[in-house]
Design a protein around this nucleic acid. Structure first.
Lengths: 291, 291
DNA sequence: CAAGGTTACGCCGCGCGTAACTATA
DNA sequence: TATAGTTACGCGCGGCGTAACCTTG
């Protein structure tokens, strides 16, 4: 008796369709098909029969579903018990982040608070992090958009505004703020497409009906700062990310609030795990949290 | 929740020791240790505590054992249901044999009787077959000795006697029987050591206090026959294996009944599986069976 | 032709064993 | 010193996804 196979059967039986089950449990449909077939040939039984262009349970399949329900319930009970029993004296927490910047102080505090928990931080682009999260390779993720999926829950980690910044040698170095439209004449230094900063910025630019002809695209936050410091043009960045750099001067952008949000996200079904819950609690009590 | 890990915990908890559990479930002890540790660190809990030079359950471990017992019972119930539901209209049966000779007619009849069952025959030496059987790569095995292990059950497939045989041109070709001691002066053609035939033969020779100086060892049944047909000497073989060969004459060996048994063996816990049971029933009703 | 299921195939990680190491009586 | 458990490490199979194919309304 192989549990992967039984789980596959269970999912298909409960959803009444391979396709829907595959979506629901986030496993490819051919895999489910394989597993169910393996179950059937191993025991020499028939669990589903074709119906229309879908499938339906055989009598035996229906009996099996009853039993598998009860088994899954048992499993859930065990899982719940163990999760509730965890004392946070030991364990591990793996965080995935596309931009590790804002999460680090939180993790450092968390780690001090729960010294027995091994904390790991995994970086990657947003898509990688998303997959890692769905497939359990990370416990929580830090991302710039809230969860798309029904399967995810999130809380705001940080709220920031996009600002412009220039070199202290720049003619604008004396300004404290500009209009979005003022940027049109300048060369802009921005992050690559599909970075959170860039996405938000372009969205605002678009809704303001503006276009910029002279944009320089640079692949990392640090490199953007260096380029601006070297006088290449006006940088765009989240205010929290600018840091203290003597060579740079920040400039607010009036009128449009270019808000950029960062979320901490986890799978809904794992939200209640002791370690994950502890992290969210840490966040709720976070003095440095700007909302 | 990972079932391998839970099973590992269950085994260790029930047997009260990693070592004993490892023997009982036929999994190496480090593997069990790994799995239990993974369970513990994943949930941040402690399930066993050291005691003397063994381990004992923690309070949480004891609670988990209760639940895991119930889950294992559920599993067994599902397994039983599916096994009993099998209708032998489809499925598969893999047989391992060191000497495929005697099993083939049985399998052929079985296959005719249950055309939906895919029958496969896997050959190999006795040790390989033994491992395949214990690790589930074959459903049943055909072997010359009954199961050593408590975990195996067996039935006699065939009972045969060792006989001598010579070329029809041999001076002995007119004899119908000889004494074991008569063989001393002749060159004997035998199978390799650790073949069933050889093992039984040597055992009888030893207990009769005889020694043979002129033995020719040949690596296959067919090659032995060819060598004897070519006049190299006197062959030793199971009577059922001689077949019809115009060039050969069989000669009984008087006095000592050199009996050689072949068993069909399976894991005790799988004896009741529909397909396996059907094979044993086929054997019980086997007209060609010589006992 | 579109929606759903199956077959074919290749990759990767988990589960496993072996061997070396550590600890306890 | 012997027995029980842990750590280290490498291998192979099973679980998985992608892509192509088949089937039914």
């Amino acid at each position: 008796m192989n549990y992967s196979r039984l789980r596959a059967f269970h999912a298909v039986a409960q959803h009444g369709s391979y396709t829907r089950a595959a979506q629901a449990v986030n496993i490819s449909q051919p895999t489910l098909s394989d597993h169910v077939k393996a179950l059937e040939t191993d025991y020499g039984v028939k669990l589903f029969k074709p119906k229309g262009r879908g499938v339906e349970l055989t009598a035996l399949g229906a009996r099996l579903l009853e039993k598998s329900r009860s088994l899954m319930a048992q499993e859930a009970a065990i899982d719940r018990m163990l999760r509730e029993a965890g004392d946070l004296a030991t364990g591990h927490l793996t965080v995935g982040a596309d931009a590790p910047h804002n999460i680090i102080p939180l993790l450092s505090a968390f780690s001090r608070h729960y010294p027995g928990i091994e904390v790991a931080l995994k970086t990657g682009n947003t898509a990688q992090i998303q997959r890692d999260l769905l497939e359990g390779r990370v416990d929580v993720a830090v991302r710039s958009e809230a969860g798309y999926s029904e399967r995810l829950v999130s809380e705001v980690l940080q709220r920031a505004d996009l600002i412009a910044f220039v070199s202290v040698d720049d003619p604008w170095a004396r300004k404290n703020s500009v209009e979005l439209s003022d940027l049109v004449g300048r060369r802009l230094i921005v992050r690559e497409r599909d970075s959170a900063t860039r996405t938000v910025f372009e969205q605002f630019v678009y809704s303001a009906g503006l276009t910029f002809s002279d944009m320089m695209e640079i692949g990392s936050r640090e490199a953007v700062k260096e380029a601006v410091a070297a006088g290449f043009g006006v940088g765009i960045i989240a205010d929290t990310e600018l840091g203290q750099d003597e060579r740079l001067k920040s400039i607010a952008i009036r009128g449009s609030e270019m808000e950029i949000l960062e979320y901490i996200v986890c799978l809904r079904e794992r939200r209640s795990e002791k370690v994950i819950n502890a992290l969210f609690e840490q966040l709720d009590n976070w003095p440095g949290r700007v909302i």
